[in-house]
Design a protein around this nucleic acid. Structure first.
Lengths: 148, 148
DNA sequence: AGCACTTGCATAGCTCGCTATTCAAGTATT
DNA sequence: AATACTTGAATAGCGAGCTATGCAAGTGCT
């Protein structure tokens, strides 16, 4: 065969991402979280009250995807959205107490999943692996170089 | 608790997979293909007439996902599904002429996308990268009880 | 002031992945 | 032969991602 799927970087990336997502889904389900909320939560745990626009910029996610994700998060009591009084187009996103309290357990779950998936790699391989993924990502996003 | 998303393997895997998917989507759109059909097509180009069950086993995709993907492929004139006369539960999947003719261009598109995304890596890094992803995928830790 | 342009977000509608459930066809047990 | 179990696929319903489009609030030009 001219194309071996298990040697194709794109195929492997997709497969691997599904495996990570599957594992993380299971680990954070007891917390009442889903994987799609994770990136937004990470940003908000660091800086509460970001605008939707700011979240989109920080996460390389489309605006429409973020709008939908935030709607689910609001529905599930993780955030509330308030119009910025200075510019009423802007929605600022604020964590609820519940979301703030999930920071520790959620980060622990993510780290456990990472550790489990990389368990077969040596410390040096883990370092290389992360560096290579960063490099591949930055190939499309040269504007972010040095910022990672 | 320190968690830097751009050093998290799972986060990077997700991000990278979205980048690959985005690129491949654009490259195969002119062919009338979408990314989800690609794995099934690769198997069928190699062995036409597989059953749905066999496709599921070969691709690490859930049965329901494959059923939906094949339904879209049939709708789009890529395959036809025929009941196996020896076991009428079984659906065998057969490529159409159109799908057979797409093999060359589709594989070329995938290889071009892979090459573009890995352009910043040396030959040795590419080899390592693929090997590391294979290793991560093949790691299947037994479910831990209580302590991960 | 009035008009066009820009910006931030929401909505519609799609793919693709998942879990859970249902259904029909085969197999096995009695 | 009738019943129960097993197996292959389909369906329902959701999350998460995308593109395209709509709309209201702000900005700028005249």
């Amino acid at each position: 065969m001219e194309f071996v799927k298990d040697q194709s970087a794109g195929y492997l990336a997709n497969h691997m991402a599904r495996i990570f997502a599957h594992g993380l889904t299971a680990r954070i389900k007891p917390l009442g979280l889903t994987t799609g909320t994770f990136p937004a939560l990470l940003e908000l745990w660091d800086t509460d009250g970001l605008t939707q626009k700011q979240l989109v910029e920080r996460l390389d996610i489309e605006q429409a995807t973020m709008a939908n994700t935030l709607a689910r998060m609001e529905r599930d009591g993780l955030v509330i959205r308030k119009k910025d009084p200075n510019d009423r187009r802007v929605q600022r996103v604020w964590l609820t107490d519940r979301a703030r309290n999930l920071r520790g357990p959620a980060m622990a779950a993510a780290q456990e999943e990472n550790a489990a998936r990389l368990a077969a790699l040596t410390a040096e391989e883990k370092r290389q692996f992360v560096a290579l993924m960063q490099k591949v990502i930055q190939t499309r996003m040269p504007e972010k170089q040095g910022n990672v």
